[in-house]
Design a protein around this nucleic acid. Structure first.
Length: 489
RNA sequence: CGGGGCGUAGCUUAGCCCGGUAGAGCGCCUGCUUCGGGAGCAGGAGGUCGGAGGUUCAAAUCCUCUCGCCCCGACCA
């Protein structure tokens, strides 16, 4: 930062830009422990809104919240072979408690499949006990080598849904349903378009039958996996003897699913919408949707404008045209800071709409508004101001999604390309490349080795290029799948 | 863990090569004037120079060790 008022531009150093936005918009700060972060009120406020929206959707699909403990017997993690292989290396282990060495070490949950399905096993006897539809909001710990604010930290916040079903098909339907919930949330709230699809075997969750994911494109054209939904099959049921008696009186292993989305989505929000002036928060997730900046010169004006600002706030926040979802307004009444300085600050912090209220506006029974997404300024009448503001907030929300989707498609490659061209692309600007794949994991590994790019997913029907590639981009053999290649976070 | 960079005021940093009273900008506090896109002036507070040893009359500066952070890589939501 040569000019300490300005951010490092995205084009100069995307990574530096990201860190600066997160820190300066006061979303988070580094903690004394390497790889951990403090989520500050502005960041946590976004998380709370994410939680509320998702939680409502989980409830609407029949799930209930519960809480399982942080500490898990180490032996539990070992019971599912693939699972332990995936998570043991990054597990934090508690070996001492109460000043004594523990008989059995306790793992701090990296995820809760083991403890949850062991408990389900106690609760389920009959097919009549199924399905079990549980969600928990929790923190988890994974000892990552390299960390980044929100995107990968040793501890993070998330929700993990865990369900048990009588049949494979029901579990599969649940897995797909929750993937759909994530997609609805990411597009409708974060205004972050995603490609949904199936993970390849090498990229799937350790212990799952199948993993589906939501893949979003960041402004550096890298993919961010923002939510995953797993069909766990009977793997955990078998490991933890989660059985039930079916209608015929036969003992059956249950079919499980798990699905999670985390504070990582906040990183996705930043990298999807931020610009060189700072953060841009979609209105539906913004803790503050509207900031009012009163403008005055004299003391007389000051008291008049502060009163008018307060009135405006009351008008906006008491308007019930959005039902219980009242407009969230903040008045910036700080003295000794010029209005212009306040504008820059609130732009950095991403508040979707700014209202400037000065003597000239009052005289005309109007106010000046400025959209954060387009920086467009417009005069609004104070008559019917709540409807106008709600209207523009809705427009901002829609426009942000559209802009992000346009950008993603502009940086997606859907026509057939050579592997050489692909390598160039991945070395350069990056992209989502829709290409044929022969289904061979060795090809996947080779591409990853040579380009750092991976198969993000085998996209669901609607995301595929119609009449897409019939041959494998790498080998030229007949393609088994159309896949999305990209470098990922 | 490998490679690179960096630790000096709340933040960004100069000074280090060539040892000699620790400086600046921003921010902060007080006052006055300002106030429709990053205010001006005046005054003021704020530092174990990451830590520990060593060399020296004298160490932010030289030497040794150590701790931490950031970036790139292997691993990952």
């Amino acid at each position: 930062m040569s000019d300490d008022k300005k951010l490092t531009p995205r084009a100069t150093d995307f990574s530096a830009w990201y860190n600066e936005v997160v820190l300066r918009a006061q979303l988070a700060d580094y903690s004394p422990v390497r790889g951990c972060m403090v989520i500050r009120p502005d960041g946590y406020g976004i998380w709370e809104r994410m939680q509320r929206a998702l939680d409502d959707m989980f409830k609407a699909t029949g799930h209930r919240n519960a809480y399982f403990p942080l500490l898990i017997p180490e032996s539990y993690l070992r019971k599912e072979a693939e699972h332990v292989e995936g998570f043991a290396p990054e597990a934090a282990v508690v070996t001492h408690g109460g000043g004594k060495k523990l008989d059995e070490p306790l793992v701090i949950r990296p995820t809760s499949e083991t403890i949850i399905y062991s408990m389900f096993a106690k609760w389920v006897q009959s097919y009549r006990d199924l399905p079990i539809l549980i969600n928990q909001w929790a923190n988890v710990v994974r000892w990552e080598m390299r960390t980044r604010l929100f995107l990968r930290t040793l501890e993070f916040l998330w929700q993990e849904g865990h369900t048990a079903h009588a049949t494979h098909d029901e579990a599969e339907a649940e897995t797909r349903q929750m993937l759909g919930v994530y997609r609805t949330f990411m597009e409708g709230w974060i205004a972050m378009p995603v490609v949904t699809g199936l993970k390849t075997q090498s990229e799937k969750f350790a212990g799952a039958l199948r993993t589906y994911s939501c893949e979003a494109m960041m402004q550096d054209n890298k993919a961010l996996q923002a939510g995953t939904s797993h069909n766990l099959g009977q793997n955990f049921a078998k490991a933890f003897e989660l059985q039930f008696q079916d209608e015929a009186g036969e003992m059956q292993f249950a079919w499980n699913t798990s699905w999670g989305a985390s504070t990582r989505m906040i990183g996705g929000l930043v990298m999807t919408h931020g610009d060189d002036n700072g953060l841009r928060v979609p209105p539906k997730l913004a803790p503050t949707e509207v900031v009012v900046v009163p403008i005055w010169k004299s003391d007389e004006e000051r008291s008049r404008l502060l009163e008018a600002a307060q009135q405006l706030k009351t008008t906006l926040s008491s308007w019930n045209g959005r039902g219980d979802d009242r407009i969230r307004v903040h008045i910036d009444a700080r003295e000794g800071i010029k209005p212009g300085a306040k504008y820059y600050e609130w732009e950095l912090r991403g508040v979707p709409l700014r209202i400037e209220l000065g003597p000239r506006d009052l005289a005309g029974n109007s106010c000046m508004t400025a959209r954060r997404d387009t920086r467009e300024k417009k005069i609004f009448s104070l008559d019917g101001i709540a409807e106008s503001v709600a209207g523009v907030l809705g427009t901002i929300q829609d426009d942000m999604l559209k802009a992000a989707r346009d950008r993603r498609e502009a940086n997606s490659v859907r026509e057939p390309i050579s592997y050489d061209r692909f390598k160039e692309l991945m070395e350069g600007e990056g992209a989502f490349v829709y290409a044929g794949w022969n289904g061979d994991p060795a090809v996947e590994a080779k591409v990853k080795e040579e380009t750092k790019a991976t198969i993000r997913c085998i996209p669901d029907e609607e995301f595929r290029t119609p009449g897409g590639p019939t041959t494998c981009m790498v080998t030229g053999e007949p393609a088994k799948h159309q896949v999305v290649w990209a470098k990922a976070y």
